[in-house]
């Protein structure tokens, strides 16, 4: 792998890890009253949740 490759890998991984850490930190810091407002697609009830 060239130096350019290492730079690409480092920059890409840094961006994604930083984004993930920011989001996970945000979710973990939420108050109880706010936590239920965070949804993943599968968690959204489209009328077929039984």
């Amino acid at each position: 792998m060239t130096t350019g490759g290492w730079i690409m890998l480092t920059v890409s991984w840094t961006i994604i890890i930083a984004l993930s850490a920011f989001c996970l930190g945000g979710v973990l810091r939420l108050e109880d009253s706010q936590a239920d407002h965070i949804k993943g697609i599968n968690k959204i009830d489209t009328g077929d949740m039984e």
Binding site: I16, I17, L19, S20, F22, C23, L24, G26, V27, Q34, H37, I38, K39, G40, I41, I44, D45, T46, G47
Partner: peptide, 24 residues
């Protein structure tokens, strides 16, 4: 899917968390 959300459900952090975990 987001059309089934309630008015006070978060969209900003939910969307970003979903994208960032996926990219990870």
């Amino acid at each position: 899917y987001s059309s089934y959300l309630k008015k006070d459900d978060d969209v900003a952090l939910s969307g970003l968390t979903s994208v960032s975990i996926n990219e990870f």
